[in-house]
Structures are given as C-alpha cells and as structure tokens.
Design a protein around this nucleic acid. Structure first.
Lengths: 213, 213
DNA sequence: CTAAAAACTGATCGTGCGATCAAAAATTTC
DNA sequence: GAAATTTTTGATCGCACGATCAGTTTTTAG
C-alpha cells in the first residue's frame, strides 16, 4: 500500500489515479458551487462521486490538499480560457475590454468554476488560512490585468489612477458574475462600459469624441 | 427561570440584560473581525467576554440569533455614520462622492464592524442561508446608493449605466476597504475618482471641463 | 495461475461544535 | 432577612467532521 499523498508530484501517475483525481476534483467543484463551501464535506464529495470516503484520503493528503488542487485546476482552466482571448490585443483599451469580456465569458462557459473559487477564497480568508501558494495564484490572476493597466497608462490611453486599486475593483466586479445571478452577456457589456469610462484619459492626444459644443 | 430567548422584543429589558447583550454582541464583532468567522465559536466569544458559554444561550436563542443581532447592530451603526454625511448633498455627484467617502470613513472609524459584516455575509452565502431579513438589510444599504444614482441619471449628471450593476460594483469596492489593509484616506480618494469618471455624463449640458484643443 | 501491488471499503477514532440543564450564586422583592 | 427571581456556572449531550486503518477486492506482472 504505497502512499499517494505526495500531491504535486507530476511524475508517473497511473491511468486510474489520474481519472480518480480528476473525478474527485470535478465533484468537489460541483459540490462547492451548488451547496456552498460551508455545506460541503469530504463525505458529501465522496457520495457525489459514488466512492467511499477513504478514496479521497488515498489520493489526497487531506481536505486542505484537495482544495488546493481544486484551486489550481480552476486557475489553470480560467487562464487557458482568458489568455488567448486577450493575447495580442493591441491598444490597452482593447486588451482591457477583452479581459473583462473573457473573464465574464469564463463564468458563462464554466458556471461552477468561478463560483467555487470565490467561495473557497472567501472561506479561507474567513479561516485566516491564506498560504503563499494561495497568494501566488491570486497574483497570477491579477498580474495579467495589472500589466494591461500599466501599459495603458504608459501609452497615455489611460488616466493616472492607482493600478493596484483599479485591479482590485475590476476583479471584484468580475467575481460578482459568479455570485449574483446575472445574464453574462449584458453584464459583461455593463462592466466593459463602466471600466472603459473609469480608465480612459480625459481626451487630448487621443483622437475621437472630444465633447460637443 | 424565565426564558430570554424572545430576541427582537423591544419591551422591558433589565439594565443587566441590555449590558450583557451589548457586551456579547461587541465581543462577537471583535472575535469575527480578528479571528475570522470560520474560526469563531460561541465558546471563544464567551471566553473573550469572560463569561461562561451558557450566558450566551441565556440571552440569545442560538448562534443564528446572535449573528443576526450582530448584523443589525453593524447596519444600524453604519447607517448612523453614513446617512448624516450624505443627507442634503445637492448635486447627485456630490452625494455619490460623499457616500463613498463616508462609507470608507466608517471602516476607519469602526475598523472591526464592516470587516465582521463582510465575513458574515460571505459565510452565510457559503452556507446558503440568506434569510429575508438578511436580504432586507442588504437592500437598505444598497437603497441609499441606488437613489443617488437614479437621481443623478434623472438630472442628466450621470450617463446611462444600469443602476443595479453600478450599485453592486460600488458596494463591492467599498467592502474592499474592510478586507484589504489599505489607508482609508487615499483609498477613498481613489474610489471617488474611479466612480466619478465611471458615472459622469459625456459632457454637454453640464458646464466644466470640456476637453482641450 | 499465482503472487504482489494497487485500489477501495466502511467502521471507527478523536475533536470541537452548538445546545442543554441542574445546581449555585447574585439580585430583587416584600 | 427570607423568599422569590434573575443570572451565572460548568459539566454534559448528541452530532458531524476529517482522518485513520485493518481488511477486502481488483488489477497488474511474472
């Protein structure tokens, strides 16, 4: 009975092991999104996956470990969804609007993913357990947005707001799509509109609508 | 041994009863803000208040009931702080900026209050327990802001955004002050700046800066 | 086919929780 | 100051959780 609890190892994994781990992670995401993080236990995840509780312990070092892998999976999926939709967008404004639209689109494409993530983050903050790993994943998500905002300020497209604050507010606004019951399309349009106005430079070097009269 | 568990009764309350209830509520707020909601139990609140666990059960019908009263107290305190600072502010823009500044100022004045409230809201959402009462209190908070935004749109000061979305985003942005470690003054300025740009009408009837060149 | 390894089961353990309550202490009432 | 009432204590209850593990089944390998 060899221990499977060395989690992040990327080395040899049997077919069964990969499948089970994936199944358990997916069921955990479903359970958290549907029932709420506080209502989810390992037993309920096991029941949903139609396995006994011991299997989870067999493949994961503990609840902590499972949740960490759930986060990793959600972040990776989200990144794979958003990145190609933003990459190469040239004026920073287009990149920002693409980022917002893609992020809200991710909620529409994987309805349970961001919901689960937001719940996990909130619960871990409420339990005062925010590992360096958590911090790092959150930073990855913020970094893409931060870079867009900085480049827009450098080019003069954006006005002189504090980037860290704007980043936080945009991320929180996007997360609203996961916890509120909104139509993704219109909601994305609303956010795009809101932050387009919030970020754009007063109107000088940039050509376009310069005000009437 | 008469039962004290009829909570919302506003009738006769002995001096001791009022004092104890207030003490317990205050200790609960402290504990939640410091330790995080997930880490707080009735036993820890009792220890902090230097009383035995039974006293809490004596004055409150249960944990649910205590938390509900904590919420009520925080909302009432916040409303008492923000309302007079917004009331009478004439152009909607001034009212909006005053609302944001006052809300962030509340976090500075009562550092633990909004933090506790945000944690409680997140945890109750994660446990899928959102009573009509919860909803009603949240609505009260949003209503003041909603009215400001609507009046600003009616007067033409604000552009044509969707009020419900703008309200949500502004509230979330303010709550950031409670969960992030920010300097309230500069942060309030940032938010005021952000949402001033996000809400203002393009520039026509309203006099002022109409763009250079 | 057989033996070893891997995968899985389900009962069981310890823990901390919210809640309860009989008894004790403090306070109020007459 | 005695009786009645209110307030407080701290032990105890049942419960659900995460974790463990001895034992069973399934898969793999020679």
């Amino acid at each position: 009975m060899r221990s499977k609890i060395s989690t992040t190892d990327q080395d040899r994994r049997s077919f069964i092991e990969q499948a089970r781990r994936g199944q358990i992670i997916e069921c955990a995401i479903q359970a958290i999104a549907e029932l709420g993080y506080a209502e989810v236990s390992l037993a309920k995840i096991a029941r949903r996956a139609q396995i006994s509780t011991g299997v989870i312990s067999y493949y994961f070092a503990g609840k902590e470990d499972l949740i960490r892998e759930v986060m990793t999976h959600v972040y990776a999926t989200g990144d794979a969804f958003v990145r190609p939709r933003v990459e190469g967008k040239a004026p920073a404004r287009d990149a920002l609007l693409a980022f917002i639209e893609a992020s809200v689109g991710f909620v529409a494409a994987y309805p349970q993913y961001l919901t689960a993530m937001v719940e996990i983050i909130a619960s871990r903050r409420a339990a005062r357990v925010v590992s360096p790993q958590d911090q790092a994943m959150g930073d990855i998500r913020r970094d893409a947005l931060t870079r867009i905002l900085q480049s827009g300020q450098a080019s003069g497209e954006f006005r002189a707001f504090r980037v860290s604050v704007m980043t936080d507010v945009i991320i929180e606004a996007i997360d609203l799509a996961a916890i509120r019951d909104v139509e993704p399309g219109p909601f994305a349009k609303d956010l795009v509109d809101l932050f387009d106005h919030a970020t754009r430079a007063p109107a000088e070097a940039a050509p376009g609508i310069t005000g009437a009269a």
